[in-house]
């Protein structure tokens, strides 16, 4: 599944126009990205949660050339699947 199939499924099941379904999906995704930028935790019961993790800088290597490079610090989202999602993928 990708974004456009999700839009189509929601348009049909929620009885939205394609345009409204697209606006809605973009609104959800932008809201989640906005929360991540502010480092707010996102917690959706049954689906899962996202938290931002901070990673320090470290000395890495270019795997092709072997050359040493400095990897700067970064922050990335970490997803933890919720109970209902785990149950459903395992049953």
């Amino acid at each position: 599944m990708n974004k456009s199939t999700l839009i189509n499924v929601l348009a049909e099941k929620a009885d939205l126009s394609k345009r409204n379904a697209e606006q809605f999906v973009n609104l959800m995704i932008d809201a989640m990205i906005g929360a991540m930028i502010q480092e707010d935790r996102i917690e959706i019961r049954g689906f899962g949660s996202f938290v931002i993790r901070h990673y320090g800088s470290y000395e890495g290597r270019n795997p092709k050339t072997g050359q040493k490079i400095r990897i700067g610090e970064k922050r990335l989202p970490f997803f933890k699947a919720g109970k209902d999602l785990l149950t459903r993928i395992n049953n």
């Binding site: 599944m1 990708n2 974004k3 199939t5 929601l10 995704i29 209902d84």
Partner: peptide, 28 residues
């Protein structure tokens, strides 16, 4: 209701296809 359906369909899609790709966001 729409927000519930959004996550419900994400879950259903993931269970069905084993993968969901959302461009500009990421991949489950």
């Amino acid at each position: 209701e729409l927000v519930d359906m959004f996550f419900e369909e994400l879950k259903a899609g993931l269970v069905k296809d084993g993968e969901i790709q959302i461009s500009g966001f990421g991949k489950f």
